[in-house]
C-alpha cells in the first residue's frame, strides 16, 4: 500500500484564508447568524464565459481547486473528487421558486443544469479538460470525508498518483433560514452558518513539506459512550497512543451534541493541544474540510494560531494531529495527520 501525502491545501472561507499566507491573527469570531465567505475576485481566476453561469459554490470550488493544483505543481490530476452536503442550493432554490411562482411555465434550463450536485466536479474537469476519474459525494457532514476516503484509496492502491479532492457548500438564500429554524427548535447549532470551499492535492510522492494522511475513518452512528473506545482503537490501528497526539481539532458548534467532543477530548492527556474552529468559520456540511485545511497548515507552519485554542495548550513540537467531526450526533469522522 502506498502512503498518501497532502501536497497542497487551499481554502476560501469566512476568514481571510485564501489570498494571504496562513495567519489567523487578524481573524475575529463571527457574530451574525449567517456568514458569507470572504470571496476573492473570481474574475482573476475564471474566464468570463464560464463565470457568468456559476453560482457561489461553483466559483469557490473551481477557484480553490485551481489554486490547489497550482500550489502542488500539478497540471492534470488523475482524479477529481468533490464533496458537498447541500449541493448547488442557490440554483436549486432559483429553479424551485420559478416552478412555484410561474406554475411550471416559462422555465429556463440554466438554473436546473447548474443545480446538479456534481456541477463543481464537472466544471473543474471541463476547465482542465480532465477526462480522468470523477466523482461527487453528497452525504451530509460526511460528504467531504467520503470524497477524501475515495481519494486516499486511489493513492493507497496506486490507481492514481495525484488526486484533487475538496469540499464545498454555499450558504444560499432561503433554505438556510429553514435549517436555522430547525436548529433553534432543537437546541442545535449555535455558531453561525457559513460557507466555503477547501481543496487539496493528494499524492503518493513524499515531498519535503508534504503532510502524511495516515488514516481516515467514518461512522454513520455512534453513541457518546462509544467515542473513547472508537478513538483509542483508531489510534491503535495506526500504532499511535493518545500521548503521541500533539493536537486534537474538534468541530464544536455550540449544539447539545458538543458533548461528543467532550468525550473525545477527555481521552487525551494535558500535553495534547485542544483546538476548535467553527466559531471562526461557521458550520456547514463540509466545514470539516476547513478543519483539515487548518490541520495541514498547523503542521506545515509548526504554529497554532491563538484563535483556535479551546482548552489545554501545549507548546510541544507539532508532529501528529487528530481531527474529529460529527453533526448533531451523527456522521462521525476521525482523521489522523502527521509529518
Amino acid at each position: 500500500m502506498k502512503a498518501c501525502y497532502i501536497h497542497s491545501a487551499v481554502s476560501i472561507s469566512a476568514q481571510n484564508t485564501f489570498e494571504t499566507v496562513f495567519n489567523l491573527s487578524e481573524s475575529k469570531p463571527l457574530t451574525s447568524r449567517k456568514a458569507n465567505s470572504n470571496h476573492p475576485p473570481y474574475k482573476t481566476y475564471i474566464a468570463p464565459a464560464a463565470l457568468r453561469r456559476m453560482a457561489t459554490g461553483v466559483k469557490m470550488g473551481v477557484t480553490t481547486g485551481k489554486k490547489a493544483l497550482e500550489k502542488a505543481n500539478i497540471t492534470m490530476p488523475d482524479a477529481v473528487l468533490t464533496g458537498t452536503g447541500m449541493g448547488c442550493i442557490e440554483d436549486t432554490e432559483t429553479f424551485l421558486n420559478t416552478i412555484i411562482a410561474n406554475e411550471e411555465a416559462y422555465l429556463t434550463p440554466t438554473s436546473f443544469i447548474q443545480s446538479t450536485h456534481n456541477t463543481v466536479g464537472a466544471q473543474i474537469a471541463l476547465g482542465l479538460k480532465c477526462k480522468a476519474y470523477n466523482n461527487t459525494y453528497v452525504h451530509g457532514a460526511l460528504s467531504f470525508e467520503s470524497a477524501l476516503l475515495d481519494a486516499k484509496l486511489l493513492i493507497n492502491t496506486d490507481e492514481s498518483q495525484s488526486v484533487l479532492v475538496g469540499g464545498v457548500d454555499e450558504l444560499g438564500k432561503e433554505f438556510i433560514d429553514y435549517t436555522i429554524l430547525v436548529e433553534d427548535q432543537n437546541n442545535g447549532v449555535k455558531v453561525p452558518f457559513s460557507e466555503g470551499a477547501s481543496f487539496f492535492v493528494l499524492s503518493s510522492e513524499k515531498q519535503e513539506k508534504a503532510i502524511l494522511l495516515n488514516s481516515l475513518k467514518t461512522y454513520s452512528n455512534l453513541t457518546e459512550q462509544e467515542i473513547p473506545k472508537v478513538l483509542n482503537a483508531f489510534l491503535l490501528e495506526n500504532n499511535y497512543q493518545t500521548q503521541d497526539i500533539d493536537a486534537v481539532i474538534c468541530g464544536n458548534n455550540g449544539s447539545v451534541s458538543d458533548s461528543y467532543y467532550n468525550q473525545a477530548r477527555a481521552v487525551f492527556p494535558i500535553t495534547t493541544s485542544q483546538l476548535h474552529y467553527k466559531h471562526l468559520f461557521g458550520e456547514f456540511f463540509t466545514a470539516s474540510a476547513i478543519g483539515l485545511f487548518l490541520g495541514v497548515s498547523i503542521l506545515q507552519n509548526q504554529h497554532i494560531p491563538d484563535a483556535l485554542v479551546l482548552g489545554d495548550y501545549s507548546k510541544n513540537s507539532l508532529k501528529t494531529i487528530v481531527l474529529y467531526n460529527q453533526f448533531n450526533g451523527r456522521d462521525h469522522s476521525f482523521i489522523l495527520l502527521s509529518i
Partner: peptide
C-alpha cells in the same frame, strides 16, 4: 443552453 433561454424569452 443560451438558445434554450432565448426560446423561453421569445415565448414569454
Amino acid at each position: 443552453i443560451d438558445a434554450l433561454e432565448l426560446m423561453v424569452m421569445l415565448d414569454k
